[in-house]
């Protein structure tokens, strides 16, 4: 009974925070609402008897990823999201597409109704021990692949965010100037 009450409390909180994430124009408000979604999902994982995933959710999502996002928002000093000036009808199209997606999702869940509707008895699934032993025996290869992926992401992030060296910067500026010059000549021809 208590689990059901907690589930509905945190489910409502998660949906409210998710709507607030989409609704707010200021990216910082969106980020704070998203942290609310992550924390309420973490509480829902606890009602699903998955304490390890709940802890990792708070550490990785609410901790690491959102700190990175908030850091970038602050670094770039972003102002409010500009509303769509032209093509206003696209908002209605987006709402329609969302509705279709929702109906499709529920149809899929209706199709997998054969799934068991009673949770398994306490069997240690979700404890750190069971996850750790499965991770380093049966699923060792995926873990290694994820490790390589993280290494690639580190290298990619450094290369993308680095400042260009002086010769490279001059090359970029030269290309830009050349392109503007061509554009000017085109405009001149059109004017003639």
């Amino acid at each position: 009974m208590a689990t059901t009450a907690l589930f509905f409390l945190f489910a409502g909180l998660a949906i409210a925070c998710a709507i607030s994430t989409v609704y707010h124009k200021n990216p910082l408000y969106s980020a704070v609402s998203l942290i609310g979604v992550f924390v309420s999902l973490s509480c829902i994982y606890i009602t699903l008897a998955a304490p390890f995933i709940a802890a990792v959710q708070v550490l990785v999502y609410a901790g690491a990823i959102m700190v990175l996002v908030v850091f970038v928002i602050m670094l770039l000093n972003l102002d409010d999201d500009k509303p769509l000036q032209r093509l206003n009808y696209l908002y209605a199209v987006g709402a329609g597409l969302g509705l279709i997606l929702l109906v499709q999702t529920f149809f899929i869940f209706y199709a997998v109704v054969k799934a068991p509707n009673k949770p398994q008895e306490e069997s240690g699934v979700g404890k750190t021990l069971s996850i750790g032993s499965a991770m380093y025996t049966e699923y060792l290869l995926p873990v290694e692949i994820v490790g390589v992926l993280l290494l690639m992401a580190i290298i990619g992030g450094v290369i993308l965010a680095r400042r260009l060296s002086q010769p490279e910067l001059e090359l970029v500026v030269d290309n830009e100037l050349e392109k503007r010059h061509e554009n000017d000549q085109d405009d001149f021809r059109i004017a003639m």
């Binding site: 959710q57 690491a64 990823i65 990175l68 996002v69 970038v72 992401a153 580190i154 992030g157 993308l160």
Partner: peptide, 17 residues
């Protein structure tokens, strides 16, 4: 979650660039 963390690093790098 690991893929999301990698995506965050690369995605925010692209946004900064």
């Amino acid at each position: 979650m690991s893929v999301a963390a990698a995506e965050a690093a690369v995605g925010l790098g692209i946004i900064i660039a």
